[in-house]
Simulated scan of single mutants.
Amino acid sequence: MQKLGRYLLEDRLGAGSFATVWRAYDPEFDTDVAVKVLADNWASNADVRERFLAEARLLRKISSPRVVRVHDVGVQDDRPYFVMDYVRGGTLAERIGHCRPAEALRLAAEAAYAVQVLHDTGVVHRDVKPSNLLLDAGRTPPAVLVADLGSAKRLADASGVTVTTGTPAYMAPEQAFRTGGFDGRADVYALGVVTFELLTGERPFGAGGRLDLTRKRASTSSPPAIPREPGVPDGIDALLRAALSVDPEHRPRTARAFADALLSGEGREGVPAGSSRPTRLVVWLSAVALYLVTAILTWLVR
């Protein structure tokens, strides 16, 4: 069995481009933990290494039961790692297609409240998606914790971001194409995608790459309507259309407002006044802008 420091690695929980997360056993405290290890091929890259350790420091500073906690950091064979809570219950990705509307809305609201904790500390996540939202089955009812701050950015620095990061299917247009600065409403957009997916089992704009998503968003001003199933309040459709708006000004202003609206039984409460749907001018301008971005990117990749 592989060992990192005193931690015995048991099961691989997930892997990305830069790191792998393991379920491990801590013999000192006789408990399971999660250990995130930087990939071999990135260990010598100073920038990636610093971002990896910055994530650990950021998680350590945020003290909230809604955010995964970091307990230890270490280096072995020149590969840094950090040790976090092991959250029993899997991720929201495993709940897609397997929960009733009322439970889907509750889980989505839990996720939004967790993201609001980050915003309250001046941080935007930038990669909110079901696999980064952990379900703590040890609480009643199960709670949602936010994890993986590898793409997180301080709101004070958001206007100077020049590198696109995140998962295309969940990225707000202003984040995907860097059309100016962004704020916590980019995470609200991602929460809208997550909520739609929990309710329907599908993503509102599909799972294509960035260029494909651009074409879809340019050709439609809003996602498909939420099916009128028992347990889904009438206002949820309008709320999600607002959250997934191309224009951040039309989205709920905060993740907390979005969560409150999901739980209120009348989703319209989370829609900013006068923004139930984008104006024709905004839709037209957004479509033109996205079309131009698509054309430029298509020309560059030829």
Results as ranks from 00 to 15, higher is better:
residue 52 F to S: 05
residue 296 I to N: 03
residue 49 R to K: 12
residue 38 L to W: 07
residue 198 L to A: 07
residue 217 R to D: 00
residue 162 T to P: 00
residue 86 Y to Q: 03
residue 238 A to H: 10
residue 175 Q to N: 06
residue 243 A to K: 01
residue 86 Y to F: 15
residue 14 G to N: 02
residue 207 A to G: 12
residue 206 G to S: 09
residue 8 L to M: 12
residue 252 P to K: 04
residue 176 A to Q: 08
residue 35 V to Y: 02
residue 237 D to E: 13
residue 225 A to Y: 01
residue 130 P to W: 13
residue 32 D to Q: 11
residue 169 A to T: 14
residue 201 G to P: 06
residue 3 K to P: 02
residue 145 L to H: 04
residue 33 V to L: 14
residue 131 S to D: 15
residue 70 V to S: 09
residue 279 T to D: 13
residue 192 G to W: 03
residue 102 A to V: 15
residue 7 Y to T: 06
residue 93 A to Y: 03
residue 186 A to G: 14
residue 235 G to V: 05
residue 53 L to P: 04
residue 97 G to V: 04
residue 84 M to V: 09
residue 181 G to C: 08
residue 217 R to Y: 10
residue 148 D to Y: 03
residue 206 G to N: 11
residue 113 Y to I: 11
residue 212 D to R: 14
residue 251 R to F: 07
residue 63 S to P: 01
residue 104 A to K: 08
residue 236 I to G: 03
residue 245 S to Y: 04
residue 29 F to H: 12
residue 100 R to I: 02
residue 292 L to W: 14
residue 129 K to E: 07
residue 103 E to C: 04
residue 116 Q to A: 08
residue 7 Y to D: 08
residue 92 L to N: 10
residue 240 L to S: 08
residue 37 V to H: 07
residue 214 T to K: 01
residue 119 H to T: 05
residue 120 D to P: 01
residue 171 M to L: 14
residue 168 P to S: 10
residue 163 V to R: 14
residue 208 G to N: 09
residue 137 A to M: 10
residue 149 L to K: 00
residue 51 R to E: 12
residue 52 F to H: 07
residue 248 P to W: 11
residue 23 R to H: 10
residue 84 M to E: 12
residue 138 G to E: 14
residue 141 P to F: 05
residue 113 Y to R: 15
residue 220 T to P: 00
residue 74 G to K: 05
residue 3 K to D: 07
residue 112 A to N: 11
residue 293 V to I: 15
residue 19 A to C: 11
residue 224 P to A: 09
